[in-house]
Design a protein around this nucleic acid. Sequence first.
DNA 1: AAAAATTTTTAGATTTATCTAAATATTCAA
DNA 2: TTGAATATTTAGATAAATCTAAAAATTTTT
Lengths: 218, 218
Amino acid sequence: MHSFTEENYLKTIYHLSQLNDSPVQTNAIADGMKTRAASVTDMLRKLSDKQLIDYIKYQGVTLTDRGKTTAVSVIRKHRLWEVFLVEKLKFKWDEVHDIAEELEHINSGLLVERLDEFLGFPKRDPHGDPIPDKDGVFEPGQNIHLHEMSRGDKGVIIGVNEYTSAFLKHLERLGLTIGILIEIQEIADYDGSVELLVDGKLINVSREVTQRILVNYK
Amino acid sequence: MHSFTEENYLKTIYHLSQLNDSPVQTNAIADGMKTRAASVTDMLRKLSDKQLIDYIKYQGVTLTDRGKTTAVSVIRKHRLWEVFLVEKLKFKWDEVHDIAEELEHINSGLLVERLDEFLGFPKRDPHGDPIPDKDGVFEPGQNIHLHEMSRGDKGVIIGVNEYTSAFLKHLERLGLTIGILIEIQEIADYDGSVELLVDGKLINVSREVTQRILVNYK
DNA sequence: AAAAATTTTTAGATTTATCTAAATATTCAA
DNA sequence: TTGAATATTTAGATAAATCTAAAAATTTTT
């Protein structure tokens, strides 16, 4: 088995490698793990020895198949536990991320499959992120970020990519929650902020926010 | 917060101190933690510095109030998770101990209280052990071990004090599960084995087994 | 109460994950 | 294409939890 720390590195590398196709860089990992580049180098050597990553000094890393499988399994657990916390224990969507960061490392294949079944095999977590099935397969989704849409476009909010309580509460105040229909009214040239029609009301959101919202584009 | 290891030491010391009134000895802890006496001494110094135990060199340890509170909180979480696994996820009673050993260290006060509520504030876990409430109070129980009973005595099995899958499966084969009524028919002088009337049938159990079964004596 | 047996502690290493500071490699820009 | 800036790695330490072997304290036995 892998240590919590190893699992967290793999998860971070996985998420970073989703952002673009090139190998993930040491500093990006250090940022993601809130640690120092030197510590990352130490860990990369270890993960490479265990054949969880392909690592060439100074050239960044990519996950091996084994590494990817492990990362996806941790992500699956994280998202299933988030569904449990919200659906069964009545947590708010902005309260579950940190607890799921701990629960995702519990080690029992049977537990995950039973939990999945108990929850009715959910396809998405409370933030709209897809939950890989037990073979690690994600439901395909053709989603785009809100800031990539144009005036007049419509779509349904399907996810976010920041999980801080502050951000999620902000969205809730604006009425921007998973499943809600939005329509782009206006995009401001000078700061990229966007005027949206949501639930019959006009609201204004900053570019920072539009970059963190995923929309299922119709 | 305390590390997983510290919490496990506190839990072990708590359980050992339940067995008799004298301070818990280094070797007993080493046995319980499956480690060496020297490692225990190292940790005792650390727990003592943190004022979780009262420790006098060569004289053994007792938990301070702070230490006891922590230990009971871990035990509460362990037992609640066991109820969850059996009641909600359909695990057998012999499958849940190891998973609960991991889940008991998840750190969120709110999570425990929500879980307790979700489960309907259970009073006992699947092995019959009492679950302390959120203030650490156990429901009082006047239970005795099966080996302390006499011929003709009757009672209901209320718990066990070994949680290995092998032991629990053995009990199940014998029909000895929580809640079942038993009556002592005969106690063998030469090996302490006991003949029991269970569910209309006569069965024989070794002294090793009788020492690990708790009975609510009528 | 001295010797023997047992228990516990100390001394000194080891492993894992981390760090700072310095050295080295790579990339960017003039 | 060379120097500057940036990114990464190495060297050497530190803290947590563990270990073995030896020393010291305590308890038991004679």
